[in-house]
Design a binder for these strands. Structure first.
Length: 351
DNA sequence: AAGAACTGCAACCGCAGCGCG
DNA sequence: CCGCGCTGCGGTTGCAGTTCT
């Protein structure tokens, strides 16, 4: 039909719509505009009502709990905004979609998490430069996803963030990252391991700490870490590793990194994820946020029980080719009770 | 102070699914 | 089974408000 009004609604139009629906219900949306005396299409009326005028709509900022719920639900459901909104009373799919696109997506990206796959990003190879964020994400996502009830997450998160122990680990990681930037500088002299160990970890440095550092230094001194032109152009970020590092022989040097649990968290060994990263085991310790599958295929694979190879493979280098799920990613034998509770919780939601 | 760039949100568009004749 | 109309959904756009330069 010609001449139908489009664009923002006026208060008068809103009133007409509300009055009509309150007295008659919406009935057929197509017929409604005529009955209500509105020069709008039915679709526009429906949208206005469901996204804005409905009396049960909750307006205002999303709470931490809602935020975590959205992240968890999105990791399982993908962009099923209406399904997600059905689990958040008073929130519309449009509002959640907007909130995701404007806030949560950016937040996850900043944490080094791919908002589509909910896994740590592998699209940029300068992983070391993002180590602090990745590890923070690993710790955070571990907290988020190990809860049987997502509403508990905010509390857990808060407790965790105040943990001095955790902050100490992050500080170490930050130091490591900074150190590696220095390693990658133009001067690049051979390095004194003992000096660095004492600087970084004091006399308390563990054997694991030392092994990690040794590996990094060995890489540096043997010239395996190179800064790309792009990264130099990016203000001298730490160099990425040459593609050759996905070669198993060279990866041998990195397997020691898999044992650096102090940098991750005390339970990091439970993460059985397996995707290619220049750091092999080390990065594979970091879990997906919730689902290790991309949302597009996540639901159908919830019940799969694929055996992920421990080491990077060509297939595993493609995040979208992952077959493991969240629940598998938590994997192995640790915290089975929590994991099972979590799995059933999300299964319930999906069903 | 002014213009540019960015951000957030309401609204629109096009498509898919469903029910009905 | 097919076509049609309706509804709901997800992606995208447009614009007002805010921040930056």
């Amino acid at each position: 039909m010609h001449g139908l009004k489009k664009g923002p609604w006026t208060p008068e139009e809103d009133k007409k719509l509300v009055d009509h629906i309150e007295t008659n219900g919406h009935g057929s949306w197509r017929a409604l505009p005529k009955l209500a005396g509105l020069n709008r299409c039915g679709k526009s009326c429906r949208l206005r009502w469901t996204n804005y005028l409905r009396p049960d709509i909750k307006r205002g900022k999303f709470s931490e709990e809602e935020e975590q719920a959205i992240i968890n639900l999105h990791s399982v459901l993908g962009n099923k905004w209406s399904t997600i909104s059905s689990h958040l009373p008073g929130r519309t799919d449009n509002e959640i979609k907007n909130f995701w696109n404007t806030h949560l997506k950016k937040k996850l990206l900043q944490m080094g998490i791919d908002p589509i796959t909910h896994r740590p990003r592998t699209d940029h190879l300068n992983l070391l430069a993002n180590l602090p964020q990745l590890l923070a994400a690993a710790n955070l996502t571990h907290l988020i996803s190990n809860s049987a009830n997502p509403w508990d997450n905010a509390m857990r998160l808060q407790q965790h963030l105040s943990s001095a122990d955790h902050q100490q680990h992050l500080a170490k990681v930050q130091l490591m990252s900074n150190l590696l930037q220095a390693l990658n500088s133009a001067a690049n002299p051979p390095l004194n391991l003992d000096l660095m160990m004492s600087s970084l970890f004091g006399k308390q440095g563990s054997f694991q700490d030392q092994r990690v550092l040794e590996s990094l230094i060995r890489m540096n001194n043997s010239g395996q870490m190179e800064a790309s032109d792009d990264e130099i152009g990016n203000g001298g970020q730490i160099g990425h590793f040459s593609a050759g590092l996905c070669n198993p022989m060279q990866l041998d040097d990195f397997t020691t990194l898999g044992s650096c649990e102090p940098f991750l968290n005390s339970n990091s060994s439970q993460f059985g994820g397996s995707y290619c990263a220049p750091f092999g085991d080390y990065i594979s310790e970091i879990p997906a946020l919730v689902s290790a599958t991309s949302p597009e295929r996540g639901i159908s694979s919830i019940n799969e029980n694929t055996d992920n190879s421990k080491y990077p493979s060509a297939e595993a280098s493609n995040p979208t080719s992952m077959t493991s799920t969240t629940f598998e990613a938590w994997g192995d034998h640790h915290q089975m009770v929590d994991d099972e509770a979590s799995e059933s919780y999300w299964k319930d939601i999906i069903e």
